[in-house]
Amino acid sequence: MSEPLLAVEGLSKEFTLHLQGGVRLPVLRGVSLTVRAGECVALTGPSGAGKSTLMRALYGNYLPGRGRILVRHHGRLVDLAAASPREIVAVRRETVGYVSQFLRVIPRVPARAIVAEPLRAAGMDAAASEREAERLLARLNLPQRLWSLPPATFSGGEQQRVNLARGFAFPYPVMLVDEPTASLDPANAEVAVGLIQEAKARGAAIVGIFHDADVRRAVATREHPVVPLAAAA
């Protein structure tokens, strides 16, 4: 069995709402999860169970309370729960990719450049990264006339496809995929499934949230239930 690329050990997360008199909201408690190369783990559980919170914690976007998030980065294990912001930035640049549900548009930046950005950040030259971006946008059936436009005015589905192209542009060893097909038509959902399959095939370790049961069955190698804490207690 291959080395795990991602190992979560005893992860807990609670939010303290200082503006609501310091109310504490525990969301995750003692979560452990190991993902190896070529695996795609689907997080399951009802809405509000903490699936998205877990994903965000894995990306360093939420600050974990307790536990460890070990990621194999450049051949050594980095604990994202204890890493400095600079280490997290480095890990995100080359090791952990995140495909979120929504595109955070940057004013004035055309779709092509948004998709090419992770490649450029990882050191690819401008022309090659734009070619790769165009290849992905074409594959996701985004009309060519939109490539040079900023996506602020795009439809939800078009934005989602730009987002997918951006997320899959760089071959991250670890990928976090949050509802990749939520606003896509069946044909494009098919393309998204294809992208995930290819990522698995090249040996990526994937954690995803897939509400669409068909998509989940198509890509997941196994499921990991996330249990709401209120129900567990």
């Binding site: 939010f15 709402l17 200082h18 503006l19 976007n61 939420y62 600050l63 912001p85 997290i88």
Partner: peptide
């Protein structure tokens, strides 16, 4: 102090929470 998106999405200090909200 911290990673920009972490401080904005999961602020810890009461004042940061006020600012973000």
């Amino acid at each position: 102090a911290g990673l920009t998106d972490q401080v904005l999405d999961d602020p810890q200090h009461p004042y940061s929470q006020l600012l973000v909200s």
